[in-house]
């Protein structure tokens, strides 16, 4: 069975469900507990909540990671076994120079900071660039597949 993880959503599963999503500037964060065979995916939109308590916790990097960890533990996961995979943070239409941090890269930086807080190692990452990414995660096997378009992007002038 497949489930599409929408923007701001978090989904954790112990079954052979395949979680998938598409990200551009957002970050798809996958967590995997190999011993207990629990996987989860979050589709994180923005870096910091700045006290916004009305938003779903999956929306901001600083609240999403804690929420995902808490849900992994609730489903029987053990924090010591959990590893992370980060995908996304592209800058597809950005005119910013490389010295200015884009939303995508800021998202990634806060996700990393929060993962370090929980001592969760990042074992795979595919971050930045100018293309979107399609991600799927088999929650029983912990297999994450990332596909991105090989393309050239042209800007006039």
């Amino acid at each position: 069975m497949e489930r599409f993880v929408k923007m701001n959503e978090i989904f954790i599963s112990k079954s052979s469900e395949v979680l998938k999503t598409v990200v551009g500037s957002c970050i798809a964060l996958c967590l995997w507990d190999n011993n207990n065979r629990i996987g989860g995916m979050g589709h994180i939109m923005l870096p910091e909540s700045n006290g916004d308590r009305t938003a779903p916790p999956g929306k901001y990097a600083d609240t999403a990671v804690a929420e995902m960890v808490s849900k992994m533990v609730f489903h029987g996961g053990c924090l010591d076994n959990v590893v992370a995979m980060c995908v996304g943070g592209a800058s597809m239409f950005s005119n910013h120079s490389s010295r200015i941090e884009t939303v995508g890269i800021k998202n990634y930086r806060i996700v990393k900071r929060e993962l370090e807080h929980f001592k969760i190692p990042v074992i795979t990452e595919s971050i930045g660039g100018t293309t979107g990414r399609k991600i799927s995660m088999n929650c029983r096997e912990g297999i994450v597949t990332i596909s991105m378009l090989l393309k050239s992007v042209k800007k006039p002038g």
């Binding site: 923007m7 598409v22 990200v23 551009g24 500037s25 957002c26 939109m45 923005l46 592209a90 800058s91 597809m92 239409f93 950005s94 005119n95 939303v103 995508g104 100018t130 293309t131 979107g132 990414r133 399609k134 378009l149 393309k151 992007v153 042209k154 800007k155 006039p156 002038g157």
Partner: peptide, 21 residues
């Protein structure tokens, strides 16, 4: 602005537009 053009996953494209500051 001049047009910026791309060929990509529609979700990723729209997401990047919405995430403009």
């Amino acid at each position: 602005s001049v047009p910026e053009n791309t060929f990509d996953l529609l979700g990723a494209v729209l997401e990047s537009v919405v995430l403009q500051k």
